[in-house]
Computed example of a mutant assay.
Amino acid sequence: MRLTEFWRRMHEHFGEVYAESFAKDHVMSELGGRTVCQALDAGWEAKDVWRVVCRTQGVTARLR
C-alpha cells in the first residue's frame, strides 16, 4: 500500500481534519506504543499500520 492510498483511506474514514489529529496524537499499543505517524516514521509498512487502524477503530469493510 502506498502512503497516498493510506492517507486517502484515513481521510475517508476519519474525515480530513480528524485523520491528521488521530494520526499525530492517538498512541496505540498495537503499534508498540506509537502513534500512526511515529510508526510510519519508524519504518512500519503503511499496510501494516492500516491493518492495525482497521482492527482497532472499526473501519468499514469497504475501506479495508
Rank of each mutant, 00 (worst) to 15 (best):
F22C: 07
F14V: 01
W7D: 05
R2H: 08
M28V: 11
R51M: 06
L40P: 08
H26M: 00
V52M: 15
K24Q: 13
Y18S: 03
W50N: 01
E12G: 02
F6K: 10
L31V: 02
S21N: 05
M28T: 06
T56P: 01
S29Y: 08
D41Y: 02
G32T: 06
W7V: 05
C37Y: 08
E5P: 08
E5V: 09
S21Q: 06
G33R: 02
M10N: 04
E5K: 11
A42Q: 00
A42Y: 07
L40H: 03
F22G: 03
R9L: 15
A39K: 08
G32Y: 09
T56M: 13
D48Q: 09
G15P: 05
Q57S: 06
V53W: 08
H26P: 00
T60W: 02
G15D: 09
E5Q: 15
F6G: 09
T60H: 05
S29R: 14
R55F: 00
S21T: 11
A42K: 11
V52D: 10
G15I: 08
A39E: 09
R51S: 08
T60S: 11
G43W: 09
L40C: 09
T56L: 13
R62E: 14
R8S: 14
A19Q: 03
H26E: 13
L63V: 10
A46D: 15
K24S: 14
C37V: 13
S21P: 00
T4E: 15
E20N: 10
M1C: 11
R8C: 12
S29H: 11
S29V: 13
V59I: 10
C54I: 04
A19I: 03
R2W: 05
T4H: 12
A19R: 01
T56Y: 15
F14R: 07
W7L: 07
H13Q: 00
K47L: 06
H11A: 12
E12P: 01
H11F: 11
T35P: 08
S29G: 07
E20C: 09
W44M: 04
D25M: 07
K24D: 14
G33F: 13
A42N: 14
V52W: 15
A23Q: 04
V59Y: 01
F22V: 00
D25C: 12
G15A: 10
W7E: 04
M10C: 12
L31T: 09
R9H: 11
M10E: 03
R62K: 14
G33D: 09
E30S: 14
H13M: 02
F14L: 02
S21C: 00
Q57R: 15
A23G: 09
Q38M: 13
V17H: 05
V17Y: 02
H13A: 04
Y18L: 07
V53R: 00
Q57K: 13
E5T: 14
D48R: 01
G32I: 06
V59K: 03
V27Y: 14
E45T: 05
K47Y: 03
Q57V: 00
A46W: 07
V36Q: 06
T4G: 14
L40S: 04
V36I: 12
E5S: 15
